[in-house]
């Protein structure tokens, strides 16, 4: 490092450390000398392993973050919370069906939601968590699935909930039910799977298997998306995902790679 970054002070579980500005929380924790055995995973904001609680100077609130996605601030006081206890009674997706009361039946604690919105305010993904719990309570499985689509199961919502709701497990069941029972099967997909099974693409697949990692990466980076049809695709699992009611815009991700 030719130019030394200025040092800032942060508290890690109550103990002061001087760390360079510009580090992520995770890097700062490691800079401070800790070896992360839990609380680190993909380091890319997707795996949900590094939920972190922190306070800032001059603000009474508790803030939440993914340690790999958030930069240190001077005066910050933080702790990692790599896991939130979760016990769910097992269910068999092949025997349960998406009824209006299915989610309530498996997670009766959602009836205790007081709509305080603490979960939404704590979600590092910016999801409308309370709204998907409320959709679950009224049996709107599709909406619960779509609103929770980007959940990475970090569990912060559940750690903050006054009603002890297991939000991310509720969302997961909603998405499973949605995927299995509610989205329409696309005929194109079934045709293509059948073609693969009868060996129509064996040569192409065999060729792929021989590629090096670098070649595979290059192929992946050059992949293209099919241009969406003029009319709405009736088989799209995320067909209402970009509607005005939803806060997360998925389209930008498609445009970047397309």
């Amino acid at each position: 490092m030719s130019e030394q970054a200025p040092l800032i002070t942060m508290q890690l579980m109550g103990k002061n450390y001087r760390v360079p500005a510009g580090l992520t929380l995770m890097a700062a924790i490691e800079y401070a000398g800790y070896k992360l055995v839990r609380g680190a995973g993909c380091r890319g904001g997707f795996c949900g392993s590094c939920p972190t609680l922190y306070r800032r100077e001059g603000n009474h609130r508790i803030f939440t973050a993914l340690a790999c996605q958030t930069l240190v601030e001077d005066g910050m006081c933080l702790v990692q919370m790599p896991f939130v206890p979760l016990i769910t009674r097992p269910y068999d997706l092949y025997t349960i069906t998406p009824q209006a009361n299915t989610l309530l039946q498996h997670f009766p604690e959602i009836a205790g939601c007081v709509a305080c919105n603490t979960c939404t305010r704590s979600c590092p993904q910016g999801l409308p968590v309370m709204d998907y719990i409320q959709a679950s309570l009224r049996g709107d499985i599709e909406r619960a699935a779509l609103l929770s689509f980007d959940c990475i199961s970090c569990g912060i919502c559940s750690s903050r909930c006054p009603a002890d709701i297991k939000h991310y497990a509720v969302g997961l069941l909603a998405r499973r039910l949605y995927g299995k029972y509610i989205t329409r099967n696309a005929p194109d997909l079934a045709e293509r799977v059948a073609a693969i099974e009868t060996g129509d693409f064996s040569a192409e697949l065999d060729a792929l298997m021989t590629l090096s990692a670098a070649e595979l990466r290059s192929r992946y980076e050059q992949r293209t998306f099919e241009v969406a049809a003029e009319q709405e695709d009736p088989y799209s699992a995320t067909r209402s995902y970009n509607s005005a009611m939803d806060p997360v815009d998925y389209q930008d991700e498609l445009e970047v790679s397309g």
Binding site: R89, Q99, N101, T102, L104, Q105, H106, P108, E109, A111, G112, L137, R138
Partner: peptide, 23 residues
């Protein structure tokens, strides 16, 4: 004390009210 089968039959209105009065 509720079994899942009972829960499936009950309307949310009963569960929410019961939860608010019993917790």
């Amino acid at each position: 004390q509720l079994e899942r089968a009972d829960l499936g039959a009950l309307p949310p209105i009963a569960l929410v009210a019961s939860m608010r009065r019993n917790s």
